[in-house]
Design a protein around this nucleic acid. Sequence first.
DNA 1: TATTGTTATACTCTATAACTATA
DNA 2: TATAGTTATAGAGTATAACAATA
Lengths: 176, 176
Amino acid sequence: MHAFDRSVRPLRQRPSFVLSQLGFHSDRTFDELLVPVGVTRRQFGMLRVLADADGRTQQELSSVLRVHRNVMVGLVDELETAGLVERRRNPADRRAHAVHLTDRGRALLPMGEAALDACDDRLLGALSAADRETLCGLLARVADEAHLLPSVHPGYEHAGDELAAEDAGGGGQLPR
Amino acid sequence: MHAFDRSVRPLRQRPSFVLSQLGFHSDRTFDELLVPVGVTRRQFGMLRVLADADGRTQQELSSVLRVHRNVMVGLVDELETAGLVERRRNPADRRAHAVHLTDRGRALLPMGEAALDACDDRLLGALSAADRETLCGLLARVADEAHLLPSVHPGYEHAGDELAAEDAGGGGQLPR
DNA sequence: TATTGTTATACTCTATAACTATA
DNA sequence: TATAGTTATAGAGTATAACAATA
């Protein structure tokens, strides 16, 4: 175990540090790739959830994305202003707003996925297909072990208040 | 290439996303482990640089850590208040402040390194030594390819102004 | 005139609480 | 009384510019 001797190891050999660097770099890269799409990372994450769960209330969306309901208000505001979602009244409970994707919002989804593809390619472009798959597998194992929800970004997560622990499976959110 | 088919791949299979998740998680974990040490991540990064470069001016430290000199003022203030560094006047150039580690500051370094060890262990605890080394190698390659400086965290980096591009090698900074 | 360090201002994000309208 | 959504306020963090002392 000579490569892992303790104490003064340079930071490039510290997985914690490199993960932190790469996480930040990944965010920045994806931000950049998302500019031509016209939404932010956070907004895209929200649209991605709605793709699988159209018509949920803001409260339910808060729960899935693990953000505070106060923040959800602003997020829906932004997307509604951009014409990507719309709020509809629920006749059964007129307090609740059902959030629906518009056609424009739905049309935007594949563009965002393409940006994600491009982001993965840009980050892992130097790796062979085999190395890439090895890396993905190891990252997924580490994320599992850390109990990170498969599609919720911890950067948006909100500790306090009312958040029903639940995982949306394939749908998800983007990040920070 | 069946595991990598495009379009609706869940986020857990998106390396960009998982890297972002894990980067955030790593930050949070290290923050936690650093609490008993009594410094923030950023402060520890600074102390780590000083370990290799005691007595540099604030301007030089700004350059190494790639933060703005205005921010460096506050960082040195914090550390000086905590008694971990001290500013000394340079007789040759009385504008410049040489920043020196105090004994207390130096004594704190191994505690921070131990926290880093613990952070790595907590994050990668589930992996075998071999898998761990494989992951570290792949992460380092990706970081190299992204032109991330081996010991500078991009979250602190400052775009504008005067920053002499330089790498401190073993010394470094922590982050965000 | 340029440079080192400092301070002040503004802007973004987020956290908390308080408010309204329904139930 | 509790809940869905909204609004307002305060606090961190950061970016920009302007400033005093020295070169």
